[in-house]
Simulated scan of single mutants.
Amino acid sequence: MERRPRGNCAACHRRAGKAYNLRKAAAPGSHTEAEWLVHAATFSHCPGCGRSWDVVERPNGQKRPYTKGHIVALIDGGSNGIENLRPECARCNYGGPGVGFRSKTSGRPSMR
């Protein structure tokens, strides 16, 4: 069975994923996987909620407890450069059930 966010049909989920990938490809800045791993290693906890990586659940069997979070969302004009990334737990990055994502800079809801 395909896993998808609550409230979205599979077609809507695919369409949103394609739109995000297009924004990511068009965004300025870039980074290598090695740069990301070095950068992420400088964080001992999630900067969004403050939980230590030791207690953060690993979503869908991921190797690491963190995901790539954009400080300024791509849809708000953020870059994909390493300076605009920070490791975040899945709950903080994806909003989790009943939690509305808010732009980390403007505080307004972001269309992610």
Rank of each mutant, 00 (worst) to 15 (best):
M1W: 00
E2L: 03
E2S: 01
R3I: 07
R3P: 00
R3Q: 09
P5I: 02
P5G: 00
G7V: 01
N8A: 07
C9Y: 00
C9T: 08
C9G: 03
A10K: 04
A11I: 02
C12I: 04
C12G: 04
C12W: 01
C12K: 10
C12Q: 10
H13P: 00
H13T: 08
R14G: 01
R14M: 00
R15D: 09
R15Y: 01
R15I: 03
A16W: 04
K18E: 11
A19S: 07
A19L: 07
N21A: 07
N21F: 01
L22G: 03
L22F: 01
R23T: 05
R23V: 02
R23P: 00
K24M: 02
K24G: 01
K24N: 09
K24Q: 08
A25N: 08
A25P: 02
A25L: 12
A26E: 14
A26C: 06
A27W: 04
A27N: 05
P28E: 14
P28V: 11
P28D: 11
G29S: 11
G29M: 09
G29N: 10
S30T: 14
S30I: 02
S30E: 07
H31L: 13
T32M: 04
E33N: 06
E33A: 08
E33M: 04
E33L: 12
A34P: 02
A34Q: 15
E35P: 06
W36M: 11
W36A: 10
W36G: 05
W36D: 09
L37V: 06
V38A: 13
V38K: 07
H39L: 15
H39R: 15
A40L: 10
A40K: 12
A41D: 15
A41M: 11
T42F: 05
F43S: 07
F43Y: 15
H45I: 00
C46A: 13
P47V: 10
P47I: 12
G48N: 10
G48P: 09
C49G: 11
C49I: 13
G50Q: 05
G50W: 12
G50C: 08
G50D: 09
S52Q: 13
S52P: 06
S52T: 13
S52A: 14
D54C: 05
V56K: 14
E57K: 13
E57Q: 12
N60S: 15
G61W: 09
G61I: 06
G61N: 14
Q62K: 15
Q62G: 11
Q62E: 09
Q62F: 05
K63C: 02
R64P: 01
R64T: 13
P65L: 12
P65D: 14
Y66T: 11
Y66H: 13
T67C: 14
T67Q: 15
K68P: 05
K68F: 07
K68H: 11
G69D: 15
G69T: 05
G69I: 05
I71Q: 10
I71M: 06
